[in-house]
């Protein structure tokens, strides 16, 4: 729903970091999105295509790493990945657990070109 705003956040942080490293171009932006968030990749990619032209990230790839939901059983301590609607512990059958992964919204890393690298594709 607000993927445009989230995408602007990704782009702003990436452009700041890339400029600080003297980048001439951003080639790839790698992010992680937990499966328990409501962020839709299709909408993110759509926003990315709309927002990047005219920036250092024009033509770059937004690579999304989806992080599965993971919980820790409050009874036996087992850690396991699970479906959103059923976080029952597979080891002991206890339905009560605490969430330990799946809510992430992170910018992991960037791949950039700096002017002093040998051109790879003759641009």
């Amino acid at each position: 729903m607000h993927e445009m705003g989230i995408c602007q956040g990704i782009l702003d942080a990436s452009l700041d970091a890339a400029k600080a490293e003297g980048a001439t171009r951003i080639k790839e932006i790698r992010i992680s999105v937990g499966e328990l968030t409501e962020v839709v990749e299709y909408a993110l990619q759509f926003a990315f295509e709309a927002l990047t032209p005219g920036t250092l990230a024009e033509g770059s790839v937004l690579l999304v790493n989806h992080i599965p939901a993971k919980s820790r059983c409050l009874q036996c301590g087992a850690e396991y990945e699970h479906d959103r609607f059923d976080s029952t512990c597979p080891s002991c059958g206890n339905p009560f657990s605490e969430n330990i992964a799946g809510r992430e919204l992170l910018i992991d890393s960037l791949e950039i070109d700096t002017g002093d690298e040998a051109p790879e594709d003759g641009e």
Binding site: I6, G9, I107, S109, L110, E111, D113, E117
Partner: peptide, 13 residues
């Protein structure tokens, strides 16, 4: 060249 960011997307918020 790779830059490691490891930053929350909604960091400002």
């Amino acid at each position: 060249m790779e830059i490691d960011l490891s930053k929350r997307i909604l960091d400002r918020n």
